[in-house]
Design a protein around this nucleic acid. Structure first.
Length: 1036
RNA sequence: GGGCCCAUAGCUCAACGGGUUAGAGCGCCCGGCUUAUAACCGGGAGGUUCCGGGUUCGGGUCCCGGUGGGCCUACCA
């Protein structure tokens, strides 16, 4: 055999090969994880072993109620789900390992528009011929399909939970609980019927939801400028400023609109309180003067649009008075409606802009959201003389009626209205003028939409509640104080520093608080069939809509047995025995209300349906954990429902996470490249998926199939979920590297154990064997890690867990394990220091498996499988409890280790030039030399050292340092990984000199030692170890 | 348009109520070991803490204003 190499020591041919006598690392635990293939096998095993059930049945230290926010049963799992579900599973598994009982009941949101739309797309016009129940059946099938798909996908990424009995909002029991929640609101007296403007498609005769809107980019609309004549109040107000002027002509306010058909419903003129308005003086064709009120910044544009060639802006001052007004000064002035006999007051609205129109906005509360809000704020009538078909009704005012537009479609009436305005002389521009702009149309018929006030059911935010724990307060008041109660609790928890509570991150409080404070009344009715009906009964005699707590509860009981289909199928049983109209007292004829509840009301009731009053669960729930969009959604609706049913928030803690986005690079102006997250909008995702496209190159389902769920889980854990989480190849490659590092150290620990059941640290102590100083230090480090990880988990800081574990593992690999190899391999198995180190390695691998189990359940189980088992050890890592290593102890070993590692660093630094062949403090010039092929060998060949153990060091340390090193004096050489070390104690600058080791090398442990026997080529330690080994292996 | 939030090394993140020379892990570069070997060890190079002001003895940290990004929401009369 020819060995080529610089310094490989070739043992004499006669020498015995001692390899067999070494205790080298050995384990069947594979380096390769092969996760994609093996994960399903573990899932299968856990299922067969009924791990989850046995966790629920074992004696618990308490209960942790974690309530799953229901994903919508529509479409495949995407990265947002992965992020959310993985975080949830971290919590579930961690709390379980703490010994608490965690019944995690996964759920799905099954009702609602998107599913109904899917079904509509699939069935088309045929759907029209079906009954409500038939349509509902189709929707149910659709929802069931996706529940099944998502259930499999969620389980595949390792989620632990009650998969055989999830909660579905479409189950009869759940539907009944929704109504019970509604009954609570009814009891409190805060449910009412009112008008609300909605987007309405006259072609389909239905209201449309936001998601059903499409926009026509170049829609042509009429453009009319209309003047409203000021009445006496205007004159009176202006006269103070311009005593003479107003005798010369009338004052008009000019408005602009693209919907002339809404003019009959005009109820006010809105101005911005801070905008500047001016009067234009103009003489009409008869030479009569008139004064036109418009916003100052728009005056010129209005004149152009109306063809006023010589309007004059009133001079800045006239008769000593300022002629410009601030909007505020106009409030309350009254102008005459352009054709009906009524007045339009000037009101304030902050949305009035100076970018288009006249700065004075025609306001019809029955025909626009802003207008509606303005109307409500100013006590205006919500008036909408338009029917389902989009045609004018008899409710029109007498003048408009006289134009013969009753029964005419509003858009068809537009030109006629413009003509009439022109005839009346109130139109400032020409009747045929139009503009092209973006306008909403129906997704199905593509016909333009109109805004129309319709009758809806509402929950009042500010009405005082009549009953319940907070009778006399409004829902908004209670909800806001609950938000603050949670925030205060969170602040307390932060001071304690142990376990986080309340709003996490704390900014969540600001968000939901702002939303609750600013939200309008809750519109809970929807004009659809796939949902839970609002069980109101309309009296056929007087038309009164009856909705009482007793009625709702009666229907709830019916739903509990037969499901919500009963509302559509059973016209008689829905009416309680002896039920009479609250208004007219008649009891013989009722029609059912055909609205369903907002799906947010349903999911907002989920804690009530799933947790409250349930064994192993309860109220309030410990934790809700969802994306930050749920401040508007589920957290929000759950809070409102909770305040109505129980008088408090249904959760103690709300954790929110950000969104998953694709990483993109952007070159900045200064040439630097900045990495940004480009979020993937939910709508884009749905759209792309519906076309069968991959949403991203990093499709999560594909990732699971190729790299395994574990990589995704680790990706989640390494990111700061409170912010948006990035998605890129670089990020995933890094996660895989992190994974390997953790896996490899676990593997090495298992290899060190070699499948042997070793003594525990406690057992060693009992046997009178003290841990070696390094072992003690490492064990202490492990105890610290475990304690800190527990805190991090309790604070939902999974990132910190991984960061600390990674650092721990990297440090152990680089120092403790590297150093201990010497005796682990070479000492006899029964030596105290091997026993001691093995006990620590055993503790390490066990603790790591359990600590990582919540985040890496598959890998932890893989490791656990190979941990040599003692009696009483659990068969699965997921049945284990959090490691108890005792409190970390301060044995002053930290200082010793710090000192020895500082010395090691100095030695390494001194060694480096001798190993590397050139000065370590080389600068750029040398680097270039090297690149140019310059002579590398700045050090004589005789000084070259290939490996630390071929070197001896002479180190000088201070007295203080020597004192610190004392506890480790026996293992300094090992810690430095050198052949030999001479430590001189000397005050002054410390120094290290490296020289080639001159002592003979032991062929077994390869260290250079004075005590190597020439004949055996073994050192004392190895001689002893081999002798004992030989005695134990007589046959060998 | 409004509300809330985010920005530190190539990547993922640290840096307790302002306080040494802004750290860690991974990646990258150079080298070693061949007894963790698709592993392991040593060394090294990477930062305008997004930009601009302000407060302060002192700013990654606090304040104001930008820029970029995200979530929610409103509107286009």
């Amino acid at each position: 055999m020819i060995t080529r190499g610089k310094n490989i020591t070739q043992p004499p041919m006669t020498a015995r090969d001692f390899k067999a006598t070494l205790r080298l690392p050995e384990s069947a635990f594979s380096m390769k994880a092969d996760l994609a293939k093996r994960e399903p096998q573990w899932l299968d095993r856990w299922k067969k072993a009924a791990i989850y059930r046995s966790l629920l049945e074992r004696p618990a230290k308490g209960t942790f109620v974690f309530h799953d926010g229901p994903p919508y049963a529509n479409g495949n799992m995407h990265y947002g789900h992965v992020l959310n579900n993985t975080l949830k599973d971290f919590v579930t598994r961690f709390r379980t390992i703490l010994g608490e009982r965690v019944k995690f009941v996964p759920g799905w949101d099954c009702h609602g528009l998107p599913i109904e739309q899917n079904v509509e797309k699939a069935f088309g016009p045929k759907l029209r011929e079906m009954t409500a129940s038939q349509r509902r059946a189709k929707c149910r099938e659709e929802a069931e399909k996706w529940v099944k798909v998502q259930s499999e996908q969620r389980q595949r990424i390792g989620m632990m939970g009650t998969w055989d009995d999830p909660y579905l909002t479409m189950k009869p029991a759940f539907e009944a609980r929704i109504l019970e929640a509604l009954a609570a609101f009814v009891d409190r007296g805060i449910v009412y019927r009112g008008l609300k403007p909605v987007w309405w498609s006259s072609a389909e005769r239905t209201a449309l939801a936001e998601s059903e809107l499409e926009y026509e980019e170049s829609h042509k609309s009429p453009s009319v400028y209309v003047r409203f004549k000021g009445d006496e109040s205007v004159k009176a107000a202006l006269k103070k400023r311009f005593p003479t002027m107003l005798d010369r002509g009338d004052v008009y306010a000019v408005i602009w609109t693209t919907t002339p058909w809404t003019l009959p419903a005009n109820r006010a003129l809105a101005v911005h309180p801070a905008m500047e308005y001016v009067l234009l003086e103009r003489s009409d064709s008869d030479g009569k003067l008139e004064y036109l009120l418009v916003a100052e910044p728009l005056a010129k544009a209005v004149c152009e649009a109306c063809g006023w060639s010589k309007p004059e802006l009133l001079p800045r001052t006239m008769h000593g008075a300022e002629t410009a007004f601030v909007g505020n000064e106009l409030l309350g002035l009254k102008f005459a409606h352009p054709f009906e006999d009524r007045e339009s007051p000037v009101v304030s609205a902050l949305y009035v802009e100076a970018t288009a129109g006249t700065g004075i906005v025609h306001t019809a509360p029955g025909h626009g959201r802003d207008d509606y809000n303005t109307g409500v704020a100013n006590g205006l009538e919500v008036y909408s003389p338009v029917d389902d078909a989009g045609e004018f009704t008899e409710e029109l005012g007498p003048v408009a009626k006289s134009w013969g537009i009753v029964g005419k479609h509003v858009f068809a009436a537009n030109p006629l209205i413009a003509e009439k305005l022109s005839e009346l002389g109130v139109l400032c521009n020409k009747p045929g003028d139009f503009i092209v702009h973006r306008y909403p149309i129906s997704w199905r018929s593509k016909k333009p939409l109109l805004t129309r006030a319709t009758v809806q059911w509402f929950i009042a935010m500010d009405e005082l509640m009549a009953t319940g724990p907070h009778a006399g307060k409004s829902l908004r008041e209670v909800a806001l104080s609950e938000i603050d109660r949670l925030a205060a609790d969170g602040a307390d928890a932060e001071r304690e520093g142990r376990e986080s509570r309340g709003w996490i991150p704390a900014a969540g409080r600001e968000r939901i608080h702002g939303m609750i404070a600013g939200r309008p009344d809750w519109c809970i009715s929807r004009q659809r069939v796939w949902g839970v009906p609002i069980p109101a009964l309309h009296c056929a005699h007087c038309g009164h809509a009856n909705l009482t707590g007793a009625l709702v509860r009666h229907v709830a009981k019916l739903f509990a047995q037969k499901g919500a289909d009963a509302w559509y199928d059973e016209s008689e049983s829905v009416v309680p025995e002896g039920f009479a109209c609250a208004q007219c007292g008649k009891s013989d004829s009722f029609t059912r209300d055909m609205n369903i509840l907002d799906v947010w009301f349903e999911s907002g009731s989920s804690y009530f349906a799933v947790c409250a009053d349930q064994p192993d669960l309860g109220f309030p729930v410990d934790l809700y954990l969802e994306g930050s969009d749920q401040h508007r959604g589920w957290f929000h609706s759950s809070l409102l429902v909770g305040c109505a049913t129980h008088g408090s928030a249904p959760y103690r803690t709300v954790v929110t996470h950000g969104f998953v986005g694709e990483k993109v690079e952007q070159r900045l102006a200064d040439g630097r490249v900045k990495t940004l997250i480009k979020a993937m909008h939910k709508r884009d995702i749905e759209e792309k998926r519906s076309r069968g496209e991959d949403v991203s190159v990093y499709d999560p389902l594909k990732m699971v199939a190729t790299d395994g769920a574990e990589i995704l889980r680790l990706w989640v854990a390494t990111n700061d979920y409170s912010d948006d989480v990035g998605l890129s190849k670089a990020a995933f490659d890094q996660v895989k590297d992190n994974y390997r590092a953790i896996r490899n150290v676990s593997r090495f620990l298992l290899q060190v154990l070699r499948g042997e059941v070793v003594e525990t640290v406690e057992a060693l102590g009992a046997a009178g064997v003290a841990l070696g100083p390094l072992d003690q230090w490492q064990y202490n480090k492990l105890a610290t890690l475990v304690a800190r990880c527990e805190t991090a988990y309790r604070q939902y800081d999974f990132r910190a867990v991984i960061a600390m574990v990674s650092e721990f593992v990297s440090d152990a690999s680089g120092f403790y394990l590297d150093v201990a190899k010497d005796w682990l391999y070479n000492d006899h198995r029964s030596s105290d220091r091997v026993r001691s180190t093995l006990a620590v390695c055993d503790a390490m691998v066990r603790a790591l498996a359990v600590v990582l189990a919540p985040i890496l359940p598959f890998t932890a189980e893989d490791v656990w499988d190979f941990v040599p088992k003692r009696e009483g050890d659990a068969s699965s890592v997921h049945l284990c409890l959090w490691p108890s290593l005792g409190a970390p102890q301060d044995l002053h070993l930290d200082d010793a280790v710090r000192a020895v590692r500082a010395l090691r660093e100095r030695v390494n630094l001194a060694l480096e030039p001798l190993v590397q062949g050139w000065g370590v403090e080389k600068k750029t010039a040398e680097k270039e030399q090297r690149a140019a092929g310059a002579d590398e060998a700045r050090w004589p060949e005789s000084l070259r050292i290939d490996h630390a153990r071929d070197a001896d060091a002479v180190a000088t340390v201070s007295k203080d340092e020597a004192t610190l090193l004392a506890p480790l004096s026996g293992v300094v050489t090992e810690c430095l990984l050198l052949g030999g070390v001479t430590v001189n104690v000397h005050d002054g600058a410390h120094s290290v000199t490296i020289q080639r080791g001159t002592k003979p090398q032991c062929t077994r442990c390869r260290r250079r030692l004075r005590d190597v026997d020439d004949s055996t080529t073994l050192c004392r330690r190895c001689t002893d170890a081999v002798a004992r080994w030989d005695a134990e292996h007589p046959s060998a």
